[in-house]
Design a protein around this nucleic acid. Structure first.
Length: 798
DNA sequence: GATTTTACGTA
DNA sequence: CGTACGTAAAATCT
């Protein structure tokens, strides 16, 4: 039985779940591994464990640490045994005796017992009344034990602790008093908008929309974080007001859009919808809480609810969306403004406002690209579909004969049955991220290729081809808009928006990363196409055809990441190569041996650049690739068709010739050790909060080159759109390439404009350099040929 | 019907 | 022991 510990005068009480072995031995709470994590968190939040009360819901360690032991119904944990009831009574007693101002509930069980709430993700960070002792504030956060597994949650936990400390100092303060007007008349709403517009102050704005079509049905405006008004203009699927009244509402919004600086949460969506469906353009959309949060904490969640839980003192409001959509929307608008007020100050003290402003500057071109979409030729689409279908049938016949029964190759389970049980082949296992993960059988392409080598059976080639065909079909067999277009949603901050257009969906927690590149996902406004436009295979690109008399022009950064790496690691040989070959034609590069892969091959084989054979060049290319991303011999070997040992010899030879790379890796590790933070060449910072180890290192090695190129391209894209957007039709953003569509006679002009926009100097270690640009031109996105700017061609001619 | 797993497309 | 991203289809859970 572990008693509550701490000073009687303490204002904060921490309640965990149950003691562990260390606690039982010491007879004191939080003395084991969780205790040391807790100490670190408390220290970061600015408080010591000697100032707080420490206890657990359960006073004893359950057998095997399994909390369900204290319940009659096992895992469900809804019917407590008498002993659990007695623990609750003890907890209640201690709360009443010590009477803390704030209780910090650590983990699910403490939250449930103290507040009656379920779902720690939704409820943590908010202030709730204590069920056991009404009037005592309860703030829930993650249990320290879970931070062992998910270090990223530490940031949130520290923020929650800080909030608890603030509240402990102000016993009577619960929430910011505020007014959310959720049922105004149309006239009241219009009057409010007009009044706010006249003042021209910063407003928070949010819309709710109805699918299909993403039509706005609720409008929310807030001029102060403690006041918002929300109007529902729809009655089910019918307009709520007469035409005249609704028109006046839209005029009022349009007036706001013209006069007030506006803050939104993911306003990329709201402004695109307002423009597309209502013709309203937000002239002064200057700030966005999603982008502010991304520039401050790119590694953290950034939904409005999360941000509010971390920086505001408002009650949780997500649950109101169903019972009162206008109340919900008003809270969204007010909280957006409230969050902005805090983040705006933080951005200046962290020095990241330039990142926010840079991302905001990408908004207009991103919105244009989303609404414009890309044209697909229906005839070519049908042709491709037919070819896929026919080849599929032919392959199915051959496969049926070879296998003797019908197997759904899209089913990993059926394929495993066929390969590893029926055919008795050696089971292939998936590549693991670290050695502690369990081995999992796989039937992916790599496994099939291994089996092919093992058996020399052509069956596997056929299986691979059939699977690829099915994959390709998903990119070709797509719905087109009435204008024969497909659309996407470009997410400037990386992760995807939800269907409702707010918050963030992150399947895998790693996906908060967002290394400065846009992501592309299914359009919520115009749901046509395969969604992500950044992963269309080249075969499917052939149906994205330029109209008669027009050409696609592609400009991409040449060897972009390799150039950045060369400067980062101080590889003089490569730096010289990139300088010498800058702006030179491919023929000239070839003639002079300016070829990074030949140079790499020479570093490995020491044969002289001019003597490198085709095979050696391939080895050089793949080795360079492997080392750039710190891949190991196990990855390189199958790609070269050699043994792991031989691959290791190659890698060793490379590292011997290029010691700078390993030195740079060590430098990155030291930088991480100091602050866990890296800064790319354009000043964008990223904190790496994963568990310390190789996986974190590899991610970190990729960060600077990848994010620098991402930022560089977006900078160029904004320049191209701002300076040439009237004459040049930008079509696509593909991480290190931009695609445009122009009349044939404007191809040279387009290339010159793209070159001028994309050649942007970078600086590292006081040295300035540029990444060169390559061009391709053609009749479709999938049919492009090398092109160059004619030597005597000047941009001014146009 | 909703969520998770597997596989795979791009840079 | 490449990283980053999003989606389709099958498998599994509730």
């Amino acid at each position: 039985m572990i008693p509550t510990e701490g000073p009687a005068s303490a204002e904060i009480m921490l309640v965990g779940e149950a003691p562990g072995d260390a606690e039982v031995r010491a007879g004191r709470p939080f003395t084991g591994p969780s205790g040391s994590i807790l100490d670190r968190l408390l220290q970061e939040a600015g408080i010591s464990r000697h100032e707080v009360l420490l206890t657990n819901v359960c006073r004893d360690k359950p057998p095997g640490g399994d909390l369900s032991f204290f319940f009659l119904d096992g895992k469900k944990m809804s019917q407590p045994k008498p002993i659990f009831e007695s623990y609750i009574a003890m907890l209640k007693h201690d709360i009443e005796v010590y009477r803390p101002t704030v209780i910090i509930a650590l983990g699910q069980m403490a939250m449930k017992v103290l507040t009656g709430l379920h779902g720690i993700k939704e409820n943590r960070g908010f202030v709730n009344d204590c069920l056991l002792a009404p009037g005592v504030k309860v703030i829930t956060t993650y249990h320290p034990a879970i931070l062992n597994y998910d270090y990223k949650l530490s940031f949130t936990a520290v923020m929650d602790f800080r909030k608890a400390i603030r509240h402990a100092k102000r016993p009577s303060f619960w929430y910011t008093e505020r007014t959310l007007v959720d049922n105004p008349t149309a006239q009241e709403f219009i009057d409010y908008c007009d009044e706010v517009a006249d003042k021209g102050e910063v407003i928070g704005f949010d819309v709710e929309t109805k699918s299909p079509g993403a039509h706005i049905n609720i409008l929310g405006v807030s001029h102060r974080s403690d006041y918002a008004m929300s109007l529902d203009i729809m009655n089910g699927i019918n307009p709520k007001y007469d035409e005249q009244t609704e028109l006046r509402v839209w005029q009022a919004i349009s007036n706001l859009a013209n006069k007030c600086p506006v803050v939104m949460q993911n306003g990329n969506y709201d402004t695109a919808v307002a423009l597309h469906n209502n013709g309203i353009y937000f002239k002064h959309y200057l700030s966005d809480t999603l982008i502010a949060a991304h520039s401050l904490w790119p590694e953290c969640p950034r939904s409005l609810g999360y941000l509010a839980s971390v920086v505001l003192d408002v009650p949780a409001w997500k649950h109101t969306s169903r019972e009162s959509p206008t109340l919900y929307n008003a809270a969204d608008a007010a909280n957006t403004l409230g969050i902005w007020n805090v983040l705006s100050v933080l951005m200046d003290s962290y020095g990241v406002r330039p990142i926010h402003d840079f991302e905001m500057s990408q908004m207009p071109v991103s919105i244009m690209l989303q609404l414009q979409g890309i044209y697909v030729d229906r005839v070519k689409q049908a042709e491709l579909l037919k070819a896929i279908h026919e080849r599929g049938i032919a392959l199915d016949e051959v496969l049926f004969k070879a296998i003797g029964r019908k197997v759904n190759l899209g089913s990993p389970k059926q394929l495993q049955q066929l390969l590893y049980i029926d055919m008795g082949l050696p089971v292939q296992y998936k590549r693991r991220k670290n050695a502690s993960e369990p081995r999992r059988a796989t039937t992916n392409e790599e496994a099939l290729r291994k089996l092919q080598q093992h058996t020399n059976n052509p069956l596997f080639e056929l299986i691979i081809e059939r699977k690829k065909l099915d994959k390709l079909r998903t990119f070709v067999d797509i719905d087109l808009s009435p204008e024969s277009r497909v659309h996407t949603c470009y997410n400037i901050t990386g992760a995807t928006s939800t269907k409702e257009g707010k918050g963030l969906v992150v399947d895998d927690e790693d996906q908060h990363k967002s290394f400065a590149r846009w992501s592309s996902s299914a359009s919520i406004i115009l749901p046509f196409g395969s969604g992500n436009l950044q992963n269309i295979p080249s075969a499917a690109r052939k149906m994205y055809i330029a109209p008669p008399g027009f050409k696609y022009v592609q400009a991409d950064y040449k060897q972009a990441e390799a150039v950045v790496v060369a400067y980062l690691i101080g590889d003089n040989k490569l730096k010289r190569l990139f300088q010498e070959s800058f702006g030179k034609s491919s023929e000239e590069c070839e003639a002079n041996g300016w070829d990074i892969h030949k140079i790499t091959a020479d570093m490995i084989f020491r044969c002289g650049v001019e003597n490198v054979t085709k095979d050696q060049r391939k080895v050089g290319k793949l080795t360079r690739h492997a080392t750039n991303y710190s891949a190991g011999p196990g990855v390189l070997a199958p790609k070269l068709g050699i043994s792991t040992k031989a691959a290791k010899t190659l890698l060793d030879a490379f590292h011997l010739a290029c010691p700078m790379l390993s030195i740079w890796h060590s430098r990155i590790q030291r930088e991480l050790q100091a602050t866990r933070t890296l800064t790319n060449l354009l000043g964008r910072k990223h904190r790496f909060l994963d568990r310390w180890g190789d996986s974190l290192f590899r991610s970190a090695y990729a960060y600077i080159p990848q994010s620098t190129v991402g930022d560089l391209l977006n900078k160029a894209l904004v320049r191209l759109y701002d300076n040439f957007g009237e004459e040049i039709d930008i079509q696509l953003q593909l991480h290190d390439a931009i695609y445009c569509l122009v009349p044939e006679e404007k191809v040279q002009y387009c290339m010159a404009a793209m070159k001028e926009s994309m050649l942007i100097p970078l600086e590292f270690n006081g040295e300035e350099f540029m990444i060169d640009v390559d061009f391709k031109v053609g009749d479709s996105w999938g049919d492009l040929y090398d092109a160059e700017i004619e030597e005597d061609w000047e941009l001014e001619e146009e």
